[in-house]
């Protein structure tokens, strides 16, 4: 259970990125955070694990505070929050295995991690996760040798290696093609479902959010302007979040995407791949 109360973030430049945001996410719920660029989506999820320092407000995870704590406590709390990034943010020159194991850094000491002597159960967990995301045979490759979709799977495995109680997902599909985007979203939703993990997913792509999210929160200029189910996300609501735009045309575009997906699938089946 994540609780955010009256969160405000004002940047040094004077920009008010978040303005009294309150939000609570119960266990097992996947929330899509939508809104135009600059609405504060990225700032909001980065305030939760304090990669960005909030100006005021309180955040708690399972009753334990995330704000107003010392550096040591903060690191202990960050272990419990897995994060997935838009450009994957893997350490490119390290192997896939090292990237997954880096999810354990909060649990092992410096020398142990530096010499790559992780406990046996960490290594076993890493292999299990790689198998889960379908990259069992890529463990020894360097991260920069993988494709975009594969890299994001490594990103997911790294976050899960932390054994998190919450997932923060920042534009997971913005660097991926439509088909891979759907595969990654499906994997994320499945994994969150398996573990009863709550997640906050920043997402640009409204149809993708409607397809996969249980709950959608709309952010505009640092304030929550919508909070409801995907079905409640009508054109009037979208206009409130994004401003006027031809939503019907966008929906049509998604249908084309879906048709293309189905086409690819048929073609692959025909070729016996």
């Amino acid at each position: 259970m994540l609780e955010i109360r009256d969160l405000t973030k004002t940047y040094k430049t004077g920009d008010k990125a978040l303005n009294n945001v309150s939000l609570s996410v119960p266990k097992g719920q996947v929330v899509g955070l939508i809104g135009p660029s600059g609405a504060g989506k990225s700032t909001l999820i980065r305030c939760i694990n304090r990669l960005v320092e909030p100006t005021s407000g309180a955040i708690t995870l399972s009753g334990r505070p995330l704000t107003g704590i010392g550096a040591g406590e903060l690191r202990a709390m960050r272990r419990k929050i897995g994060m997935i990034f838009q450009e994957f943010a893997l350490v490119e020159r390290l192997t896939v295995m090292e990237n997954v194991l880096s999810g354990r850094l909060g649990y092992v000491g410096f020398w142990r991690s530096y010499l790559r002597r992780f406990p046996a159960e960490d290594i076993q967990r890493a292999y299990r996760l790689l198998d889960r995301v379908g990259l069992m045979d890529q463990a020894d490759k360097r991260a920069d040798a993988l494709s975009g979709g594969q890299r994001q799977r490594v990103g997911i495995a790294r976050a899960l290696a932390q054994e998190p109680e919450l997932m923060l997902v920042d534009e997971p599909t913005a660097s991926l093609d439509p088909k891979t985007s759907r595969q990654i979203m499906r994997l994320l939703i499945e994994i969150c479902g398996e573990r009863g993990l709550p997640a906050i997913v920043n997402i640009h792509d409204v149809p993708l959010a409607q397809q996969f999210m249980q709950r959608i929160v709309g952010l505009r200029a640092g304030r929550i302007v919508f909070d409801g189910t995907p079905a409640e996300l009508t054109e009037a609501v979208l206009t409130k979040i994004y401003g006027a735009e031809d939503w019907a045309a966008m929906r049509k575009g998604t249908e084309e995407d879906k048709a293309a997906d189905a086409d690819t699938l048929r073609e692959m089946l025909r070729l016996g791949a």
Binding site: R78, V91, L105
Partner: peptide, 9 residues
């Protein structure tokens, strides 16, 4: 940032 987010020192 990604490494920091895992709780690394």
């Amino acid at each position: 940032e990604a490494i920091r987010a895992t709780g690394a020192s």
